[in-house]
């Protein structure tokens, strides 16, 4: 029977990253033996959740070495595990740490790594999107193991209620692999709902003219409630808002019930991160802006006029 592995990122508090649960949910439908690998503080504790989403076994190590040092120890451990257990397919989430680890593993195993995957119809095929998501490509998976990296939010996570047995990972990591060391962590937990989980995303682009106007988006999000603020890369690169708000190809993917775009042109690299929204509203002063091609409601107008009026209107209706 095919052995399928999901590489799960975990938090020190013992929570599995949502991407791992998404991928496990999909992987259950592929048949075969489904297992997870989790490395770093919190791994053993996260095994329970991974089990609930379909992993029957979790190869886990709580060793700090996997979180203190970037990618090298984890890639080495995965490689050792591959040699011992010969999985047929390893699935990763396309995000920071997993990406580095998968890239390194590809060199070690000599197997090609499929990236930007949005679906795996079976263990031999990956669907990926090219040209900013406008063209779908079916690619034949090859390699021992086959390595696949899946875009976050490609599948909706659904628990199956299983239970995983934990197999401790015991790999010795030489000093040679302890080089790129994290010495400080600066992470601000955002107030309000998380951007990738919020049912409503109000997002701004260069059309908002100046950084101060992002405050209006905050106010609108506050008025709507249960809404988060997002941004395009253009404004992130200009330093208006932190990178954590960037939506798109090199940022995060959101799938809210409603996405409201203020002063965003609709470049393919932005669209790929938000076109999974159920409904899209766009406000842009250029009637030819590409964002209108995918908007359910488009308003040709000045975002700086519409925004304050909308804040008042929403407040009024919510009473």
């Amino acid at each position: 029977m095919a052995k399928i592995w999901v590489f799960a990122e975990v938090t020190p508090e013992g929570k599995a990253d949502t991407t791992a649960l998404e991928i496990l949910t999909k992987a259950r439908s592929l048949g075969g033996e489904l297992e997870a690998v989790a490395l770093g503080p919190g791994a053993t504790q996260a095994a329970k959740e991974l089990g609930e989403y379909g992993a029957t076994t979790v190869h886990a190590s709580d060793d700090d070495v996997y979180s203190d040092y970037v990618a090298q120890p984890a890639a080495q451990a995965l490689y050792q595990l591959c040699r011992e257990h010969s999985p047929e397919l390893i699935l990763f989430a396309q995000q920071y740490d997993s990406r580095d680890i998968a890239g390194r593993l590809s060199a070690k195993t000599g197997s090609t790594l499929m990236t930007n995957v949005m679906d795996i119809p079976d263990t031999n095929t990956a669907k990926t999107a090219i040209f900013g998501g406008t063209t779908i490509v079916d690619v034949a998976l090859e390699g021992e193991p086959k390595l696949v990296m899946i875009r976050p939010k490609s599948f909706a996570p659904e628990a199956s209620g299983g239970e995983a047995s934990v197999v401790p990972v015991e790999v010795s990591i030489s000093d040679e692999l302890k080089k790129a060391k994290r010495v400080e962590r600066h992470e601000e937990a955002a107030s309000g709902p998380k951007l990738d989980e919020a049912p409503v995303v109000v997002s701004g682009g260069r059309g908002l003219q100046e950084p101060g106007n992002f405050e209006l988006l905050e106010q609108l999000a506050g008025a709507i409630g249960n809404a988060a603020v997002g941004a395009t890369r253009a404004v992130v690169d200009s330093g208006w808002v932190p990178y954590a708000l960037q939506i798109g190809q090199t940022g995060i993917t959101v799938k809210p019930s409603v996405y409201i775009a203020f002063g965003i042109s609709g470049a393919t690299q932005h669209l790929v991160g938000m076109k999974g929204a159920k409904k899209i509203v766009a406000i842009n002063k250029d009637e030819d802006a590409p964002i209108f091609q995918i908007a359910d409601l488009g308003v040709v107008g000045d975002a700086l006029k519409v925004l304050p009026a909308l804040i008042e209107e929403v407040k009024k209706r919510k009473g």
Partner: peptide, 22 residues
């Protein structure tokens, strides 16, 4: 290279909805 393309197809596009002047 070990990546073989089996098939290319256009992605499903969202349709434009209503566009109004403010």
């Amino acid at each position: 290279s070990k990546q073989t393309v089996k098939e290319l197809s256009p992605a499903e596009e969202r349709k434009a909805g209503e566009v109004v002047e403010d």
